[in-house]
């Protein structure tokens, strides 16, 4: 049914949203609070999947626990809602058993970097062909707004009522240092750029990581004097500065100054499956590869 005919007969048939064919509409309206940025990211993800032209039978969405973890429950594709922090191990298994498919991991900062931090660094190190979408809302939203590894220094949460004493992670720098081959960061209002970036990440071969700074007015904004969803969305967007292709170390999120966003890393490297096939086909020689002309350390250069 086309959207036009459905929109015309409003009373008898409810209007059909253009993305309804990818949504489990029987579960809508969803659980995300008024003004939560996850819905925007979810919409971007669905548009990017549709625009990429991937066969929908071969796209899977895996998520962990948390507000963002509900994404897997609302999308009408193959999806799995894993235990807390274990979205990446599940996605790894899924990718290795079905390498021709596309696996998207959509999860929050608490799931990917707090309880699942170790899984993240190793998935990035192996350069598995996964697309990881991390919705960063700067706290643990679902459990009531506790301090997370992403909470900015000095921000108030339920477990840091007088301000967070910790320095937060720079997720993009962490991902790039661990070996991710595509790293980008946007705020939830950079919708067109975000959709384009997710499309690029889906087409990218290797571990791609996209961090999205999303407003959490209910849990984070309320305790930090930005209760209005619109103000929080604008707070992030107005402070953001687009700096593409800079070193992720320089891409700092300074909430007193500027939040650096953009596409930081896009390089091609062999994926884990490439290496695995190379090893199994016997193309890798002895280790270490000792050649006859191995340079002997020159003592006179060392000053001996």
């Amino acid at each position: 049914m086309s959207a036009k005919t459905a929109g015309g007969a409003a009373a008898a048939h409810p209007p059909v949203h253009p993305q309804d064919h990818l949504l489990r509409t029987d579960r809508l309206p969803h659980i995300w609070c008024t003004g939560c940025g996850i819905g925007i990211v979810f919409g971007s993800l669905m548009s990017a999947v549709m625009k990429s032209g991937l066969p929908l039978n071969d796209v899977a969405v895996v998520s962990g626990i948390g507000c963002t973890g509900r994404m897997a429950g609302y999308i009408k594709l193959d999806s799995y809602h894993t235990t807390h922090g274990r979205a990446l191990p599940f996605a790894t298994g899924l990718k290795l058993t079905r390498p021709q498919g596309k696996v998207i991991v959509a999860s929050g900062d608490g799931d990917l970097f707090a309880i699942g931090g170790n899984h993240f660094i190793h998935a990035a190190r192996r350069n598995l062909d996964l697309t990881v979408i991390c919705v960063n809302n700067l706290n643990y939203g679902m459990t009531g707004g506790q301090q997370a590894p992403s909470t900015p220094f000095g921000a108030k949460t339920t477990t840091s009522p007088s301000g967070s004493p910790d320095q937060p992670f720079n997720f993009c720098a962490l991902a790039a240092a661990c070996g991710a081959t595509y790293v980008a960061r946007w705020t939830a209002l950079h919708i067109r750029l975000l959709t384009q970036t997710i499309g690029e990440a889906l087409a990218h071969r290797g571990f791609s990581f996209i961090e999205i700074l999303a407003p959490c007015p209910t849990a984070f904004g309320r305790r930090n004097k930005i209760r209005n969803p619109l103000d929080l969305l604008r707070f992030y967007y107005d402070r953001s500065v687009v700096k593409n292709k800079i070193s992720p170390d320089q891409a700092v999120m300074d909430f007193q100054g500027n939040l650096v966003v953009g596409k930081f890393v896009d390089v091609a490297k062999p994926t884990w499956l490439d290496g695995y096939r190379q090893v199994n086909s016997g193309q890798v020689g002895e280790w270490p590869e000792v050649a006859a002309e191995v340079p002997i350390p020159e003592k006179h250069l060392l000053g001996a």
Binding site: A3, K4, G7, P15, H17, P18, Q19, D20, L23, L28, P29, H30, W32, G35, C36, G37, I38, G39, I40, F42, G43, S44, S47, L189, I191, R192, T195
Partner: peptide
């Protein structure tokens, strides 16, 4: 289509 993209609830869209 910006309202469609910015709506977190999938509650608004525009048709040509």
């Amino acid at each position: 289509h910006f309202c469609e993209a910015v709506c977190p609830e999938f509650a608004i869209f525009s048709v040509e």
